[in-house]
Design a protein around this nucleic acid. Structure first.
Lengths: 142, 142
DNA sequence: GTTTATGCAAATTCTTTGCAATACT
DNA sequence: AGTATTGCAAAGAATTTGCATAAAC
């Protein structure tokens, strides 16, 4: 598993405590996270604004991708290696949001093949969000 | 085409000026709209809060569905007749957001067939957002 | 006449911006 | 040393809540 430090180096980003910790949260949680969620998961908190700015930087540099959510907050998830290596990014995997725990997971194994749109549409990117009950929550209530 | 009045009656909702006008905006624009966009399109404006509350009511009663968007605002679109008649709602059509004009359209003709997730996931709903350049914007720049 | 919807004020939450102080290379 | 990052204060959006008034049935 890649360390936060190596990820930062690979993307030519300065190593700072906040960045490492934010990355660590993503590596540890392996799910889509909002600024607020990151703040709560950080062991040594930094300013809200730093998190927002770090997320923008990471998005720009291709470490993270946005994950759609219908709750009104912006969520991000770590890009996988394959994603980082391709241009443009490949996010054709499915995101699954659990309606019970609220967590959003990247289901890397499942890919959706892009449908053909009527002529005139120039598609650049596709995002799929599935919602329901995740394995963990389903187990608990069984 | 259904009138705002008949739609409200069919859903056992009181007929009020605000509700009719908000519905009219959806019928006229036929695209996904945020509270702000509705406010701007209304001929006779009502309070912001009324729009928010009306959107919640319409969502609850099944007149509208949420449309995913990565801009951080919540958008809604009219449910089609077929959607309203099914339980749970069917929103397996594709939403297309134009990166140039920012409009989000329901591409009703295109359906995505739901992929099989690993066992343990109880899927209730799927949303697909495609992004790129819409026919209108593509035409203009050609 | 009852019930429900609206407007207004105000509070909350999410996100962005400016600038001086600090940390990284 | 020089440049990029951070924190703090503050501003700006988006959204929600409480309560009295007004409108719908």
């Amino acid at each position: 598993m890649a360390s936060s430090e190596s990820i930062l180096r690979n993307h030519a980003l300065r190593l700072t405590g906040s960045r490492e910790e934010i990355l660590d949260v993503f590596l540890r949680e392996s799910r889509a996270l909002s600024q607020r969620e990151i703040e709560l998961e950080m062991e040594q908190a930094c300013d809200r604004v730093t998190i927002y700015r770090t997320l923008s930087t990471f998005l720009e540099k291709g470490l993270l991708h946005k994950v759609l959510d219908d709750s009104g907050v912006t969520k991000f998830a770590l890009c996988s290696t394959t994603c980082v290596e391709h241009e443009p990014h490949q996010h054709d995997h499915v995101h699954f949001k659990c309606v019970q725990c609220g967590n959003t997971l990247c289901v890397e194994e499942v890919h959706v093949h892009m449908p053909i749109l009527p002529s005139g549409y120039a598609v650049q990117e596709m995002n799929v969000l599935m919602q329901g009950v995740c394995p963990d929550c389903g187990k608990t209530r069984a």
